Amino acid sequence: MQPYPVVPRIPADQPFVVRPSVRKRVFLFGGFTLAVLAVLGCVLGLGAIGSENAVALLAMFGLIALFFVALFGLQIWLLTSGGPVLAVGPAGLWIKTRPTRGQAIWLPWEAIGLISRRRWSLEKMLCVAPRDPRAEQNLGAFTALDAGVMKAFFGTGFTATLNFADKSEQEILQAVAHFAAGRVQLA
């Protein structure tokens, strides 16, 4: 049995709720997608000059561009459609258990051992390490897979984005410190 409540989506009625920012994700992934397509377009464009296969190269570029745009859309949808990523209140916090879906767990402040900030590439994360290792058990097979990857990068499976959120990193950290009220070590 799971010692802490797990729900399909973080309740939005908490005093401080953090949602993913679609705009920030689109800016990052859109820029990456445009850069890849620009390089590919230049390479294929140079290959098409003076070639009788110019139409085939253009069609190939169109298919590749369509693939990248679809991949871009899927990535944005996966990262932003699962509802809030974090909610903080006087009694504890809700945090997503998976980066791409909405499942979340409730952790009272007394059940949290450490809250820290970590960075991996462009992503800054708020990392919540529970005192009780049972908190990370029985969350489902896909969650265990996602949490394993998150643990490898961030040291815990419970993470929330800081720089791709609808609130600033400073606002999030101040709210966590305010509601934790010294009951949790913040690093």
Rank of each mutant, 00 (worst) to 15 (best):
I10G: 05
P11R: 09
Q14W: 00
P15M: 14
P15T: 13
F16I: 01
V22F: 09
V26D: 11
V26W: 04
V36T: 11
L37I: 07
A38G: 12
A38T: 13
A38W: 08
V39Y: 03
C42N: 06
G45V: 15
A54R: 11
L57E: 14
A59T: 14
M60W: 11
G62M: 11
L63R: 13
F68N: 12
L71I: 11
Q75S: 09
Q75P: 00
L79W: 12
L79M: 09
G82Q: 08
V85F: 05
A91Q: 10
W94D: 00
W94C: 00
R101D: 03
G102P: 01
W106Q: 07
L107H: 12
P108D: 15
W109A: 06
W109E: 08
A111V: 07
L114S: 03
L114H: 15
S116W: 02
R117M: 08
R119S: 14
E123N: 10
K124V: 12
R131C: 11
A135V: 13
N138M: 12
N138P: 01
A144D: 04
D146Y: 14
T159A: 15
T159W: 00
A160I: 11
T161H: 04
I172C: 03
L173Q: 09
A175P: 13
V176I: 12
V176P: 05
A177F: 00
H178K: 09
H178A: 13
H178D: 08
F179M: 05
A181D: 07
G182Y: 15
R183D: 08
Q185C: 08
